[in-house]
Design a protein around this nucleic acid. Structure first.
Lengths: 202, 202, 202, 202
DNA sequence: TATGAATGAGATTTCATTCAT
DNA sequence: CATGAATGAAATCTCATTCAT
């Protein structure tokens, strides 16, 4: 009870600091100050900086994923379903900026292999989730046959980048425009509709 | 002359070490060893680790951009032009993994603001380059009107992620499949061609 | 009653952990786990780590000394008495390895002066006990006149080292051989009996 | 050249501090102060505290052993040889107190296994050296047949303890008395010469 | 009495940077 | 120009001890 509260308090602070500074620049001292606990308390609850980082990221991503799934009404027509999915992801990515930025920026080295594996696992789960939706779409004849894994990665990459950019400079692009753009590209691409070049496309 | 050679020698080593370890995990000692010079020589040529990093990344990215532009035959039909562009980017991203991985992973904090700005400048230049091509495509009626900046970011994000993934696990996906997938999504999207749901979109 | 039981339980655990890890490497956390009490309980019963260490060692050494005295039949002929003494010491040293190893290894710094003094007191008491026996032997004409204090120290040092070695590598030397060797050296030395070099001695 | 000098300077300081405080209580900060170098210089020359400790002890012990061997005139009659040996060991033990105390007190845990093994190796070498001399004595008929390994350990243990005691309280016993006592016990034991109890022995 | 979460002073270690040679 | 020994600020992590429950 008490313990879980304190852990959440720490994870909250860690999320803020890690996302602002990145893993290496975030100092345990600062996290302790933000969390309003002593440095020792950090280590009493999480055995290392890496472990705290892992807890922060995985808990954050899991929360986002759960929320995405929750927001997704499954009885909508497929395309509406897809649009809802994109909308959820984009909005949650942006509103949980402190987690998603970490994710996008700190997957490189300097973190124990073990922790890295844990985090990548959550990411993979997420990709698989998208992949499954795309697969269903193809099976039902809504989507053209493409390598699902790559399509899912492409979708996520697009969203990552657009959301990351939005967080860097929030005034520039409106969120609904981002959603619209992602959806359009993903669904019908960039090519103008009555374009004679269609035939050129291989 | 001599000096430039030594600098290149150092930048070469730095590229290897930075891409393997990331900015913070890369140690000046190791770069010196790999470059086969003394540590002092690093500082004789670059005033700080950050500056060396900036030099490594900007030189690398500029080289890649130059190569992309060079590979691009401008008198092809637009779609072929676009496909050639994607193909160039993907192949060069992957073959210059040591630079592009740095870029994808280390843009977060821990590097002097000044250096970060320099690197982001190169990135922005690149995005603009893509943006211009898309704008031209729209003006000529090949592409549907969409916010160019977002489209360009989406395209680059897609490619970043797919190439990053390929570098992590090179056996999984063939490069030409990546190119094909990116091109298909970007041009005509995921939606199956004669799909009645078209009307539902938007 | 209850309290004494708990104290003994803690001292038992402390003996095990201190002897395995040494004073500095033994952690209060581990002692608490081994003793199956909470860490706070350690401090409820012993005001500090040093005090717990002192209690562990002095209780252990006192127990050993009491047992040695008990095993010693005083109406035996002197040399049998001496041999019995050595036998007792060696066997008890080895069977109470967890205490005697502490003693041999951890008498150096890092423990409060006060506690150190307490422990050294027990040791001194032990040396005095041996010294008294040797003095009696000399008075009765069994032993040659030598500085008793040094002889006692020499005897104890010999036994310490041989027993410590045995505990490190129990398979190497049989206990009875150790007893035999100590007794032979202490009583008649290393020099062969009818050796003409006797005259050279001294 | 320069480097070896600095290393020696550090080892000298480390010897002083380690012997006064013991391994765990000795702080790298203090060693640095005593050595008059920055803390980083310690680590530039020795990769860890343990390694510095190992270097300090093994260098010290090797120096002592070398000196013992050097002082030993091999063409003396055997008993004089033995006495010279004891005399050398005792005097060198005492005059190199800062090393031998470390050895006697800090062989317990808390030091990397690897370093411990290195130090124990030097000790073993020393024991073997004594053992060989005793073996020679027996082969030449000067010494009674006893397990050499145990005899050597016993001799060293005796000397360790007496010298350690002398260093704790230098005023108490004169060094030559210590040498005399060790020699007497080792050679002819404690038993008075024309003692009728000889027959009782064993 | 007993607990165990919380503390914080202090230790080892790292590494970018400097500068005398 | 080049070197590499030396530096010291700063970071992570430890653990004996305390105290509210």
């Amino acid at each position: 009870m008490k313990k879980e509260l304190k852990k959440d308090q720490i994870i909250g602070a860690a999320g803020i600091v890690f996302s602002q500074k990145g893993f290496h620049q975030a100092k345990m001292d600062e996290i302790a100050v933000v969390a309003k606990v002593a440095k020792g308390t950090l280590y009493y609850n999480f055995s290392s900086k890496s472990k705290l980082f892992a807890a922060t990221v995985t808990q954050g991503l899991n929360k986002i994923m759960a929320q995405i799934k929750e927001e997704l009404e499954s009885d909508l027509p497929f395309m509406a379903h897809l649009k809802g999915l994109i909308s959820s992801i984009v909005r949650l990515y942006i509103s949980h900026g402190e987690v998603t930025r970490i994710y996008a920026n700190e997957m490189s080295s300097g973190i124990d292999e073990q922790v890295l594996v844990e985090i990548k696992g959550v990411r993979k789960e997420f990709i698989n989730f998208i992949e499954d939706i795309l697969k269903t779409g193809e099976e039902k004849g809504y989507l053209r046959p493409l390598p699902h894994h790559l399509s899912a990665l492409a979708a996520v990459g697009m969203i990552d980048t657009l959301c990351g950019n939005h967080l860097d400079d929030p005034d520039r692009d409106r969120v609904d425009l981002i959603i619209e753009t992602v959806f359009t590209i993903l669904s019908i691409g960039l090519v103008a509709e009555k374009n004679p070049t269609d035939s050129q496309i291989k």
